[in-house]
Design a protein around this nucleic acid. Structure first.
Length: 109
DNA sequence: CTCTTGACTGAGG
DNA sequence: GCCTCAGCCAAGA
């Protein structure tokens, strides 16, 4: 386990935790903020271990606003229900007003 | 050390 | 506008 690797994962957790209520972000946005714009997949990997770390991974979606990876959650539609409970309009595992509620870490932080 | 895989993204058909 | 291909990068086998 290299320190750099841990920092990468840890940073993903930090950013994800700071996502405001009713807002969502994309893997690319986080990856870009971390300086690894081409490592968007790693962000998803990091979020894979976000369970139990108080990280709202359900607020993190791909750049299309699609709730990919929802099968990683407990239920099949839990991820969608959580977002809808926060005021996020989700349809067919995809964020409808994604353009409006999109939260960019590099802008807000 | 090499090959495969993947919660991705952008470009092309 | 939807589907496919290719590029990236890191972790796991």
């Amino acid at each position: 386990m290299k320190p750099e690797t841990f920092n990468f994962f840890d940073k993903v957790y930090e950013v994800a935790k700071q996502i405001p209520y009713g807002r969502v972000t994309s893997f690319g946005a986080i990856a870009n903020f971390l300086g690894a714009a081409r490592s968007a997949r790693m962000v998803g990997y990091a979020l894979n271990g976000s369970v139990g770390k108080d990280v709202p991974a359900h607020r993190v979606v791909n750049r299309k606003g699609l709730l990919t990876g929802k099968h990683h959650f407990e239920g099949t539609n839990l991820m969608q229900q959580l977002l809808e409970s926060e005021g996020v309009i989700v349809k067919d595992n995809q964020v409808q007003n994604f353009d409006e509620i999109f939260w960019e870490p590099s802008k807000e932080l």
